[in-house]
Nucleic acid binder design. Structure first.
Length: 114
DNA sequence: TGGTTGACGTGGT
DNA sequence: GACCACGCCAACC
């Protein structure tokens, strides 16, 4: 897909939607997949509006595996509960076995985007 | 049109 | 190994 007409944000949404059940990824990985590795902040900023979209923003965390965006989920542990509901072990806003549940879009669709 | 923002990442101390 | 400071780049005001 080459949604050049879509905004950077919408491209981020598309990638986040591809995250499999029970998996998580990082902002940097998404940004790198979109060819903007240095725009990881934009990914997070995009998630701000992802609220209105059908985007599983709770599956996106920072590189440390911390649920930095949980504050945007109503200020509760909703984000953590959603992850735990998918089988992802989370403790104190920190994803356990982060390397195991990590999902890299570049590895999942290596030929989809140059 | 220009300046500020930000759910990040990397590097240096 | 933890903490602090700088950089990035698209969207928003």
């Amino acid at each position: 897909m080459k949604p050049d007409t879509l905004s950077f944000f919408e491209r981020v949404y598309e990638v986040v939607r591809q995250i499999p059940f029970g998996c998580v990824t990082s902002y940097g990985a998404i940004a790198a997949y979109l060819g903007a590795a240095r725009s990881a902040r934009m990914v997070g900023y995009a998630m701000n509006n992802a609220h209105d979209k059908d985007v599983p923003a709770h599956r996106v965390v920072n590189r440390k595996g911390l649920l930095t965006g949980k504050h945007h989920f109503g200020g509760t542990h909703l984000m953590q509960q959603l992850l735990e509901n998918e089988g992802v072990v989370v403790k104190d806003n920190q994803i356990q076995n982060f390397e195991k549940v990590f999902w890299n879009p570049s590895e999942a669709f290596p030929y989809q985007l140059a």
